[in-house]
Design a protein around this nucleic acid. Structure first.
Lengths: 246, 246
DNA sequence: ATGTTATATTTGGTAAACCAATTAATTGGT
DNA sequence: ACCAATTAATTGGTTTACCAAATATAACAT
């Protein structure tokens, strides 16, 4: 068994990749690298930062996902044509990005789902309704079979609604949040003992509103369904506020 | 000059990484790889899929970002404890992920910003107000200096509001969309000639509402500000609907 | 001098090699 | 037969070497 102090010192505060991203950020903010410029070759950066090229590539890949860099094969990697301030803001956010803020997660999910269901109620096809019905059926079966929770089946129900919104961006955002949501809900045992069963009529109300293309009713039904878990988030933000005001 | 046919055949329909992700998806959906299981070693996958280990690592990295895999150094990579259906849905979404749907982008942005400003009006600190004022000042300067557009400065204004929402998840989502938004707005010349100038009073109304912590007024002011560009998205979805109904 | 072709260099893409930490197997003692 | 300590094999982490495409340079013909 290692001593505690050994374990603590072993933690590295910044991953190599984030360190590189930070360096690139400085290059841009200091004006040494202007928007539209070509980055030094990966090998050069590798040597300059004293790190393997794999990490340079990984960092570039990440920044490319965020639309800040654009790589042209066999030619070079270029800085996006965005203002320095915008690039700086986004990079700072990437480095500090953290899906572990439970309250923020729940809150973001709450508003995303309300948006999704409004759109779904308006645009759903009959195929969407069928898919949602199947998900609802699976959920009720799981609960009635005596399972303690059916978080996964519940999420599947919500995924089908997201798909019915016909907005791929919103759908993707909801899907990105779901694994973390499930983890947090299960770990923290957010839902009470009989929550699974009490959710059934709520689900049915949501389905009914979507089926009838009643946008207002759909939003209301979803708000009711998400209310319990959302209260937790609200309480979290309230606590934060008090702490900040001390 | 290459012939046209050469250029066309050179296009690869699927990147190696997405191909690997697809294979992993099949392994999971076929039951050969169950949630919680450990993945075969990277070297094994590399050989099995007939591709370099770099690509395997890249694919794993991507799936890790989405919360579907978890890598333990020197030990192994494990499938998340999610149901097969959820994993399947998310992987499908990753492969098909596409930020290029302009209408979806605008629409998602519209709703995200309305959410962000409601929260910002409620939670903004005096520092947030100052930061927003600076951004607004920069925007007006740019416009008054005769620049044809100030899309970047406009976005910076919105970034500051997102920060004031105190929800890091929502903030991140808005930041992810911004580079694509800017690109599309500039490329398509979405904004008319004098749009930059007419936006000034709208910005001021937004700021005023945030400063006064007037949630309703803030949301309304933002809706007005985003209205023009949102109309384009609405028209886009309406067109899609007609096409689908043919 | 100028435009064109060959050549050399540089680029990102890809695969392989090496490393340290972890885990499994083996050994030796009881 | 069982447990502890030691060794061997396997793991992901990291660096390096090699490749083909793209670009810059040089050589040549006009």
């Amino acid at each position: 068994m290692k001593s505690l102090i050994e374990t603590i010192t072993a933690i590295q505060l910044e991953s190599p990749v984030d360190k590189i991203i930070g360096q690139l950020k400085q290059l841009i903010t200091s004006g040494q690298l202007k928007p539209g410029d070509r980055l030094p070759a990966e090998r050069v950066l590798s040597e300059k930062f004293g790190v393997g090229r794999s990490y340079i590539r990984e960092a570039i890949l990440k920044l490319e996902f965020y639309g800040l860099l654009k790589t042209n094969p066999q030619s070079g990697t270029y800085v996006a044509g965005l203002s320095i301030n915008v690039i700086d803001s986004i990079i700072s956010d990437i480095i500090n990005f953290n899906k572990d803020d439970f309250n923020a997660l729940i809150e973001a999910r709450y508003y995303l789902e309300l948006t999704a269901i409004k759109l779904a109620a308006e645009r759903r096809t009959s195929e969407d309704v069928d898919a949602i019905k199947v998900a609802l059926f699976d959920y009720e079966n799981k609960i009635n079979s005596g399972a303690s929770n059916a978080v996964e089946e519940d999420m599947l129900f919500h995924i089908k609604i997201a798909k019915a919104s016909k907005n791929t961006v919103i759908e993707s955002m909801i899907l990105i949040l779901i694994p973390d949501l499930i983890k947090n809900i299960v770990d923290n045992k957010v839902c009470g003992e009989n929550r699974g069963r009490s959710a059934i009529p709520e689900h049915r109300a949501v389905l009914k509103a979507i089926e009838e293309k009643d946008v207002e009713a759909a939003e209301k039904a979803m708000a009711v369904h998400l209310n319990e878990i959302w209260e937790i988030s609200k309480a979290g933000f309230a606590t934060k506020k008090i702490i900040n005001e001390l």
